[in-house]
Simulated assay, not measured.
Amino acid sequence: MPEDEDKYPVESDRRRFVKGVVGSAALAGVGTTGAAAIDSATSRAGAGGGTTTYMAIENTDGPAPRGMPQIPIEIEDGQVKGVWPEVQERELDSGETIQVAETTNFKDTGLTYTNRWFQYCGVQSYPGLAPDADQDNFFRYSASPPPSYGWQGEETSGGDIVEVADFEDYEDYEGTGIGQGGLGKPAVATWRSQDVDSVIPVQIIRSPIIEEMAQDDEWLAASTDQGFMAYLNKCTHFCCVPGWKSLESAAQFGAEDEVYCQCHQSIYDPFSLVERTFTALPRPEDD
Rank of each mutant, 00 (worst) to 15 (best):
M1Y: 04
D4P: 07
E5V: 15
P9G: 11
E11Y: 04
R15Y: 04
F17I: 15
F17Y: 15
V18G: 08
G20Q: 14
S24E: 03
S24A: 05
T32E: 11
T32H: 13
T33I: 15
G34D: 10
D39P: 00
S40A: 15
R44M: 09
A45W: 04
G46L: 09
G48T: 03
M55G: 01
M55A: 12
A56F: 01
E58F: 05
T60V: 09
D61E: 09
A64T: 00
P65Q: 09
G67T: 04
P69I: 00
P69K: 02
I71L: 11
I73H: 02
I75S: 06
W84E: 13
W84F: 15
E86R: 13
D93Q: 12
T97C: 11
I98Q: 06
V100C: 03
F106H: 02
F106E: 02
F106D: 04
T109K: 02
G110Q: 05
L111P: 00
T112C: 13
N115P: 02
R116T: 08
C121T: 08
G122S: 14
Q124T: 00
Q124L: 07
L129G: 06
L129E: 12
D134G: 03
Q135E: 14
D136L: 03
D136T: 00
F139D: 04
R140A: 05
S144D: 15
S144E: 13
P146F: 06
P147R: 10
E154T: 11
E155P: 03
E155F: 05
G159I: 00
I161A: 13
I161T: 14
V162E: 09
E174S: 11
G179Q: 08
K185I: 02
A187C: 10
V188N: 02
V188I: 09
Q194A: 12
V196N: 03
D197T: 05
V199T: 15
I204P: 08
R206N: 06
P208N: 12
A214L: 08
W219G: 03
T224G: 11
Q226H: 10
Q226R: 07
A230C: 12
L232S: 05
T236G: 04
F238G: 01
G254A: 05
A255Q: 07
E256F: 06
E256N: 11
D257S: 05
E258W: 02
E258S: 11
Q262Y: 10
P270T: 13
L273S: 03
L273D: 03
R276D: 09
L281H: 08
R283S: 14
P284V: 00
P284K: 01
D287L: 12
